[in-house]
């Protein structure tokens, strides 16, 4: 069946609780776009125009429902002083956290126009919005304060601090929040819809107690900020989120993107409360055969579509950089085929 709506119209209906022509299909195609475009990764994440062009190429190849402007979660931390290395054909690697060099009070809130690779981000959003903004939502991924906080520090030290020095952690997170808000301001002014990612708040990394105490309140404040704009907020937490499912509505996010947790179980807990996004296993996307992917995705979508508040067929995490193109195509096509609401 041929699409009736544009991705923009489709997303618009979803967020006002109307059933669109078919469910939104959103494999998290981020740096993988460089592979589609046949571009070196370093070009992708250091040049905004290239990032946008790769995203557009991916969209033309797969026909999914949003542009995802993103490379890796260190982007704010880097603009605040954490050092990164840029391998030619790999994602940036964290070298020296800024808090190894100075105290949090000496770290400045970054300026999205000038600092780190934030300008790359800005340029990419602007380019993509200019090219496609009338028909496709331009999602710009913003690391949540907890994740940024951990990227500012030595991760182990940070985790120890959460127990020993909650007040110091609070100051780090406050500053990270301010940085995230500043970034959101600029994203919005360029036409991007901020999508909050908090991978390091996952239960695969921290305990539910740490999540509740440090990650959640800051996620909520970021959500609140975006809600003042009357924007619908997507929150993505990868890895295992089973232990914190009950807590997720407290973030007040409108859409929750999940990864390694059973979709059925998530529905049980969240179906009437939040719109769900997820959650095909990305390692399968890299290693399974296309037919198997198609079969599994169809099953997932059929289940996902029973979610009361609405559902987006997605991958649980970013599509692996080198995932075979036919596999991603199989994902998108299968999800489109089996995701029809209008008959």
């Amino acid at each position: 069946m041929k699409d009736i709506l544009t991705p923009r119209e489709r997303f618009g209906l979803l967020v006002i609780d109307e059933k669109p022509d078919r469910c939104n299909v959103l494999p998290l195609v981020t740096s993988h776009a460089a592979t589609v475009k046949g571009m070196r990764l370093r070009d992708y994440y250091t040049d905004g125009e290239k990032m946008a062009r790769a995203q557009i190429a991916a969209l033309e190849t797969y026909g999914h429902d949003a542009v995802s402007i993103f490379s890796e979660v260190g982007i704010i931390a880097e603009a605040m002083g954490t050092e990164f290395e840029y391998p030619e054909n790999d994602l940036p690697i964290q070298r020296k956290p800024v808090l190894e060099k100075c105290a949090i009070d000496d770290v400045e809130c970054p300026d999205p126009i000038n600092d780190g690779r934030l300008p790359v981000y800005m340029e990419a959003i602007e380019y993509a919005y200019d090219a496609l903004g009338d028909r496709v939502p331009i999602l710009a991924y913003v690391p949540a304060p907890f994740t940024t906080g951990m990227m500012l520090s030595n991760p182990n030290k940070f985790l120890i601090q959460t127990i020993r020095e909650p007040e110091a952690v609070g100051r780090i997170l406050d500053k990270s929040l301010r940085a995230a808000i500043d970034l959101c301001y600029h994203i919005i002014d360029k036409g991007g819809l901020p999508l909050i990612v908090d991978p390091l708040a996952s239960s695969s990394v921290v305990s539910p107690a740490t999540f509740r105490r440090y990650a959640l309140p800051y996620e909520r404040r970021l959500v609140q900020f975006l809600h003042r704009y009357d924007l619908d907020v997507i929150l993505h937490i990868c890895g295992d989120t089973a232990p914190i499912l009950e807590l997720l509505p407290e973030t007040r996010a409108d859409l929750i993107s999940i990864d390694q947790v059973s979709l059925a179980k998530t529905q049980e807990v969240l179906s009437g409360k939040m719109r769900l996004i997820g959650n095909y296993d990305t390692s399968k996307l890299a290693f399974s055969a296309a037919e198997e992917i198609a079969r599994e995705v169809r099953e997932m979508v059929r289940l996902g579509m029973t979610t009361k508040k609405g559902y987006i067929a997605a991958t649980g995490c970013e599509v692996p950089v080198h995932a075979p193109i036919p596999n991603v195509m199989a994902f998108v096509n299968a999800a489109k085929e089996s995701g029809w609401y209008w008959v």
Partner: peptide, 8 residues
């Protein structure tokens, strides 16, 4: 807000 939702 409306610009983000497509009113370019």
């Amino acid at each position: 807000t409306f610009m983000v939702y497509g009113a370019r």
